[in-house]
Write a protein that binds this DNA or RNA. Sequence first.
DNA 1: TCAATAATGATAACTCATTATCATTAAAAC
DNA 2: GTTTTAATGATAATGAGTTATCATTATTGA
Lengths: 125, 125
Amino acid sequence: MIRHSRQRDAIRDAITRAGRPLLPQEVHQLAQQQAPRLGIATVYRNLQALQDAGEVNQVTIPGDSPRFELAEQPHHHHFKCTQCGEVTTLYACPGKLAALTPQGYQMHRHELTLYGHCVKCTQAH
Amino acid sequence: MIRHSRQRDAIRDAITRAGRPLLPQEVHQLAQQQAPRLGIATVYRNLQALQDAGEVNQVTIPGDSPRFELAEQPHHHHFKCTQCGEVTTLYACPGKLAALTPQGYQMHRHELTLYGHCVKCTQAH
DNA sequence: TCAATAATGATAACTCATTATCATTAAAAC
DNA sequence: GTTTTAATGATAATGAGTTATCATTATTGA
């Protein structure tokens, strides 16, 4: 039987407030503002639980460990800043990707990641 | 001072013949046909050396460990078969991705991965 | 052919994200 | 309030990929 917990709320809130995919460590840091003694194991446990419950999804940027974002978002892609490492959500898609698929192949989904400098890092020059 | 070695030739040839990005284990298996007693440490050492020499590049598919492909290829993307796991090179690109970049951001490069079933796995039904 | 040493192969060691363990804490039903 | 037990926090253990170690092999210049 599933019980309510301050920690799980803090984790869900952190992901919601961020509006972008977060690494477990980022979730840990952000959620600690709301649940001070939060342990990293609890973060992993609840990310798993929230995923099983269909509340959050896993996002993997090439070369990085998985990040977590709210489920129930429209189709989107991501931008990773090569300076600060932050990942942003992009609500846009080039479309027409079926044309890239070779003869005889079946495409079911796609992932696109843009790389560059975010606003903060661009301005910091 | 760099010496010639049968093992490095076998590794370079395996990547060249494959025509697609290979995992270190795949390189190991393929190159063993040409260099029977090839050890996995030698594979890693030479992948690093070939990368330093600019002969091969590293490719990372989300969630996977790095693969290696020949450098000096035109711009391209990849297709990963969700059935057999094989990664194929796609010499095509949707283009016009600058339009997806948010105001104030600077995009330098992008990565696109298509997922689905390759010819072999599609036919195997 | 021979000497110098780069490269190899086998395997131990390491890295680091993630998971398991277990005593303690705290929801929630009564 | 009391009881039950899910959830937590601290930390040890795990695992997969990669790197380091070192005795041995093999390339290359003399």
